[in-house]
């Protein structure tokens, strides 16, 4: 994997409500440059919302977001999101564009690269995820695992400083999960700063540097994976682990 110019991401006391529904109740999350933080917890605990708040797809009601120690809340949110790549559970590739165009679109329109240069860059990124031969295919003609690897390539092409993964393997058939997870593990080893919301406890335990357990909009427990998985301190985490392991 290529070297990354990754950054340190910090969320401080993040709050978010939808009406009376208090989804995030003061979340702190610190991801050191080049490390991988996984976020685990039951569905509805606010994990996916946390990712969307940290790249300001949803603006937090309260709290601060720091990239390399500097608050980004006053920046243009579109520019912030160019620095944070995101991969979704449902892939969300653009079905009306070819695989290569999915990747080159943002390079052309946002990075202002000329068309041929953007295409060449897209092919390079596809090569990294082993799908260069699919450049001219439509996303619909790819398997789920292939689509997700294209989605990862699309995010990486923007040279992000941080990558978010929102249950990136949850929609995949079991036999396709491994390829995506090992690609993510490669990124982690390559020094990318990553926040991974996941139900894959194996990945969380073996690949991530820190694990954050969320429930009902709060961080219940966080620490190195060894500590979280072998000696959970709270009943809620113990209960969750016994349910999923």
């Amino acid at each position: 994997m290529t070297e990354f110019t990754s950054g340190t991401l910090t969320g401080k006391n993040l709050h978010l409500s939808f009406g009376h529904n208090h989804v995030l109740r003061g979340i702190d999350l610190h991801v050191e440059k080049g490390t991988t933080a996984s976020v685990i917890g039951p569905s509805g605990s606010g994990k996916s919302t946390l990712l969307r708040v940290m790249n300001r797809l949803i603006e937090p009601d309260q709290g601060d977001i720091l990239l390399d120690g500097r608050s980004v809340l006053k920046d243009n949110p579109d520019e912030l999101r160019q620095r944070i790549g995101m991969v979704f559970q449902q892939f969300n590739l653009f079905p009306h564009k070819t695989v290569a165009e999915n990747i080159s679109l943002a390079l052309r329109k946002l990075r202002k690269l000329p068309k041929d240069q953007a295409h060449a860059e897209a092919l390079d990124q596809l090569d990294l995820v082993g799908l260069k031969h699919k450049a001219d295919a439509r996303p619909a003609n790819l398997s789920g695992g292939q689509q997700q690897r294209v989605a990862i390539a699309r995010a990486l092409a923007m040279k992000p400083e941080v990558m978010f993964f929102d249950e990136a393997t949850s929609a995949l058939d079991p036999e396709l999960v491994k390829g995506v997870l090992s690609l993510m593990a490669d990124l982690a080893k390559g020094g990318m700063t990553m926040v991974v919301v996941t139900h894959e406890m194996g990945f969380s335990r073996n690949v991530s540097d820190s694990v954050t357990f969320m429930d009902a909009g709060v961080v219940v427990e966080s620490g190195p994976p060894e500590q979280i998985f072998t000696s959970p301190a709270t009943d809620r985490l113990k209960g969750f682990l016994s349910d999923v392991l």
Binding site: N55, R81, M86, F88, N92, F94, A106, L110, R154
Partner: peptide
């Protein structure tokens, strides 16, 4: 998700 993915890229 289409709008979300596009906005996540920085559009």
């Amino acid at each position: 998700g289409q709008l979300e993915a596009s906005r996540a890229l920085g559009f």
